[in-house]
Design a protein around this nucleic acid. Structure first.
Length: 285
DNA sequence: ATGCAGTCCTGTAAGC
DNA sequence: TGCTTACAGGACTGCA
């Protein structure tokens, strides 16, 4: 499931393959994507040179000359890969962008929760993000705003972390991992957290995301980078997908519960339901 | 205003 | 063995 580290890994992989290339042809499949592709966009893309590739939240922003941009969201199972144009189309390939170097940029998405959008100018695509009210990137989050949003929330802290309007980029895996690292139970209401816990949670989330980027993302099933290779961060997961297995910090069995319709994994030993009175006094191995 | 449940979509795996 | 069913979840909609 592509979250911030997977999207960042794809963006970094795309840069050397796309920057300076010209899109010479666009073809789309018959199936409707979550973000439907408009046939008119093909003509607007043809002949445009790629200037840069950026990331905003879980969106890939392919910046084109003239201020236009191709936005791609990978949804649940989206893959953006670079392949020689002669390579046969695999199953579930919905979009194919021919490049002037003989390669294709291809969008494959089994569950079709993602998709791509063309925006003709910078104003159009920045407005797209503004309308969605996407929160700050984790490293740009001001401490005061973070405190306000966590401590002011009645929801379980896990739900707050998953809310892209609060903070951009966390999904189910890294929300669970961040809460474990910060030693906070996922079901605690945001407003029950001490200020020191809120601060610990933000620094834990940043660290978890940085480590996952270093490891090239987490591959549990479908995620691959632009070269079709899986990530390595799945080997580092402390709680996600480890239901029943012993916590590597304390040995207690990892538990699973459903919060807002999503699975939440946590360690009952490291993440007690009630806040510790003496926060920060415990020695972390 | 706020938070929650329901929805989309298909491959995989469990269950009968 | 073959079929049915539950499950995975990002982002959005609609409802209370």
């Amino acid at each position: 499931m592509p979250e911030l580290p997977e999207v960042e890994t794809v963006v970094r992989g795309l840069r050397p393959c796309l920057e300076g290339r010209v899109i010479i042809g666009v073809r789309h499949g018959p199936k409707r994507l979550r973000h439907p592709w408009s046939p008119a966009w093909g003509g607007q893309l043809r002949g445009r040179r790629v200037e840069s590739v950026e990331r905003r939240a879980k969106w890939i922003v392919i910046c084109l000359e003239g201020g236009a941009a191709l936005l791609v969201h990978l949804g649940m199972t989206g893959q953006l890969t670079i392949l020689p144009a002669a390579e046969p189309l695999g199953d579930h390939t919905h979009l194919r962008f021919g490049l002037n170097d003989g390669n294709d940029l291809r969008y494959r998405d089994i569950r079709r929760f993602g998709g791509a959008e063309f925006h003709p100018d910078r104003k159009s695509w920045t407005a797209r993000f503004e309308a969605a009210l996407i929160g700050p990137e984790p490293w740009d989050m001001p401490a005061s705003l973070w405190e306000e949003r966590i401590l002011g929330g009645d929801r379980p802290v896990k739900s707050i972390l998953l809310d892209q309007k609060v903070i951009a980029g966390l999904g189910n895996i890294y929300a669970d991992e961040s809460l474990h690292k910060a030693r906070i139970h996922p079901q605690r209401p945001g407003k029950s957290l001490a200020r020191v816990e809120a601060a610990r949670l933000l620094s834990a989330a940043r660290r978890i995301l940085e480590q996952a980027i270093e490891a090239g993302g987490t591959t549990l099933r479908d995620y691959v980078d632009v070269n079709g290779r899986p990530g390595r961060n799945q080997l580092r997961l402390a709680v996600y997908g480890r239901f029943g297995k012993p916590c590597q910090d304390c040995g207690q069995g990892v538990r699973r519960m459903v919060i807002s319709g999503r699975s939440a994994h946590y360690c009952p030993g490291c993440q007690p339901r009630a806040a510790r009175k003496s926060g920060g006094s415990r020695v972390i191995p």
